[in-house]
Write a protein that binds this DNA or RNA. Structure first.
Length: 425
RNA sequence: AGAGGAGUGGCAGAGUGGUCGAAUGCGGCGGUCUUGAAAACCGUUGUACCGCGAGGUACCGGGGGUUCGAAUCCCUCCUCCUCUGCCA
């Protein structure tokens, strides 16, 4: 959620940046925010003044009662009942105004960083760099992963359909082992990079969903357990970042670095099509996430650091990849700047997104009330960042496709100690 | 899941209708003393919002109510502890 005082201080700049992500009528919407806040302040002033008077009178009544002067006390009581009705109605318009204000703020996405290119869709994303060589597969060994997993019997979609439904694969044998190996590899690498591992709940309450911005924006994309009012997490970002909700840190405690492995659940309603075969898009998948809470001055250095960490993983897995700077139209609702990492999937002959590394600046911390005490002992909002490091299914798809040959599928060296085998044949 | 008990400032813990934003202790911060440290002593020490300021308002698990006035009384929800039951 944007900070109103920031909107006020940088109004035209905010409007201009929101245009970069195709937000409609920023002037009108942000203007409304300011108007509503002014109104809120005005109502508060009125209410507080009346309340102050009422408090004073109440104290007088207390003294009179103690002195035994009941008559005088009854007399001034009249005024307080008058105040009471006024305060009550002011109270109502206050909370109404405040609700209206937050409702609007919930609909406003984060303001894109100045480096975010304007653009409508993924096609306008900027390619920052490409790394690694795209393998040339020989004819006859150019199968997409959905054929390979059948051939070697390592992932079974039909079985998943029987148990749950489409998009819930069953990993079997070496396929299951690959999952476990990747999770351990990613967690170990994150730990080496200074992240503390956590295992959070994978169901979250409504408050957590609002705090990191999945609600109300992505309501329909999360599975919901009606009976208990809990959502299945779409990413570990939600529970991990929410560990710091309502927390005031000391400046020297920053940065906070956490990593966690969780399953992730996405309903992805209506997004089934040609490009979502096999492991490309699932309702349930595994992911290791990295999350940082930083000083506002450092968050963009941290974003770079996190991006390099993810790239390091891809290099160790010997996967060709590229890094994209997302354009305004493709930028997530809560993000100020996002880099996507895509690996090349040699049989599908296309790039697959495997990680998204984002800086949310204060957009999340404002809702989280995640702050720190700076050197001047002032309490200020921290910045949050997170990134996938990494999401498993598409990594698995790319490893399978890129390393296939007539002798089977060769595993990346870095993974062999975790797997206990070097080939799937 | 049932019965009982409890939720107060960083922590411990008092307060059961009026001057309580809240005693006291510990911790933290500043100072005196000391070559330095410890001890001792003195002072200070929550958050948010409104106001140019003086200052004001709200917050004692969350929400609602009674009252001129609520940490204190009532309702409701949540959490924790103890016992019983169930269970990976």
């Amino acid at each position: 959620m944007l900070q109103v005082n920031e909107i006020r201080a940088n109004f035209s700049q905010a409007c201009e940046r929101l245009n970069a992500r195709n937000f409609e009528n920023p002037e009108e919407v942000l203007g409304n925010v300011l108007k509503l806040e002014d109104l809120r302040k005005q109502i508060q002033l009125e209410r507080d003044t009346l309340q102050a008077e009422s408090n004073t009178i109440s104290k007088q009544i207390g003294k009179l009662m103690q002195a035994g002067n009941k008559e005088e006390a009854e007399k001034i009581k009249l005024r307080t009942s008058e105040i009471k009705t006024q305060v009550k109605s002011l109270e109502e318009s206050y909370s109404q105004t405040e609700t209206e204000l937050t409702q609007i703020l919930y609909t406003i996405p984060n303001i894109p960083h100045s480096s975010v290119p304007a653009g409508k869709s993924a096609e306008d994303n900027e390619i920052v760099l490409e790394n690694g060589t795209v393998p040339q597969l020989e004819e006859g060994n150019k199968s997409p992963h959905w054929e390979l997993i059948k051939k070697y019997d390592i992932v079974d979609f039909e079985l998943g359909v029987k148990i749950a439904g489409a998009g819930f694969p069953v990993y079997k044998g070496k396929g299951a082992k690959m999952q476990r190996a990747l999770i351990n590899f990613f967690l170990d690498e994150a730990e080496k990079a200074g992240y503390t591992e956590v295992q959070p709940p994978i169901l979250i309450n409504e408050e957590s969903g609002y705090a990191t911005g999945q609600l109300p924006d992505k309501e329909g994309q999360m599975y919901f357990a009606q009976e208990d009012g809990l959502y299945l997490i779409p990413t570990a970002e939600v529970p991990i970042t929410n560990m710091y909700r309502d927390v005031i840190l000391q400046e020297d405690e920053l940065p906070k670095k956490n990593t966690g492995y969780t399953p992730c659940f996405r309903r992805e309603a209506g997004s089934w099509g040609a490009h979502v075969r096999g492991l490309n898009r699932l309702h349930q998948f595994d992911k290791v996430e990295i999350v940082q809470v930083t000083h506002p001055d450092n968050s963009y250095n941290t974003l770079e650091e996190m991006s390099l960490h993810v790239q390091g993983l891809l290099q160790k897995l010997e996967l060709p990849y590229r890094v994209l700077r997302l354009c305004g139209g493709d930028l997530g609702f809560t993000s100020a700047l996002t880099f996507d990492m895509e690996v090349y999937s040699a049989a599908q002959e296309r790039w697959l997104e495997v990680s998204s590394v984002s800086n949310f600046e204060t957009y999340q911390t404002n809702r989280l009330k995640l702050r720190f005490k700076n050197k001047d002992k002032k309490t200020v909002l921290a910045h949050t960042l997170n990134g996938s490091a990494l999401a498993l299914p598409r990594i698995m798809a790319a490893i399978l496709e890129n390393n296939q040959s007539e002798n089977g599928i060769k595993m990346p060296k870095a993974l062999v100690p975790y797997l206990g085998f070097d080939t799937i044949a």
